[in-house]
Amino acid sequence: MTRIFLESLRKGRLSRAVKASSAGPEYEKAGQELRALIARHFGRSLQIREVDAGSCGACESEIISACNPIYDIQRFGVDFAASPRHADALLVTGPVTRNMETALLRTYEAMSGPKFVITCGDCALDGGAFKDSYYCAGGAGALLPVAAHVPGCPPHPMALVEALLRLLDRLNTEGQPKM
């Protein structure tokens, strides 16, 4: 025990300073607005369940980027839930392949209301480059009511924040978007 303690003292602090955020002033500003809206509509935080319905992987990578120390979307009150039961919103990527239809519908059904669906990336909107495929439904709108869209291929983390801002701006008091 003493040995471990002495060893830790000898090593000193292992962490290092990370460069200051480089996400840019517009991102920070949009994020603060988002934070205020989330506080108003949801009390504390907006929980999102993400489902990959046939994405090429880049959309997921950018959603993960939104959580990195630079963009750190969690500080604005947005978090990604591990279970649909804990989620307010469903974020769908990919053109919705035939093999994912059932899983996507079940995930949506497992969420408690009020709930809304957001499409992320061009192929989730209408199938995008995969529109004419024999195996795609042509986007999430073919199966679910879509409340908002995050444009891009893949969308930049900033686009995610902006889309959430626009959506929450339209939310009525019941937590459902005014269409």
């Binding site: 990959d52 046939g54 994405s55 990919g94 053109p95 392949t97 035939r98 093999n99 994912m100 899983a103 480059a129 995969f130 004419d132 495929s133 024999y134 195996y135 795609c136």
Partner: peptide, 23 residues
Amino acid sequence: LGFTHRGAEKLFEGRTAAEALAF
């Protein structure tokens, strides 16, 4: 696996080489 099967190989067909490169 196969959940993200989008029929990509079929969608290559009939495209010009430049279009297919983007795809």
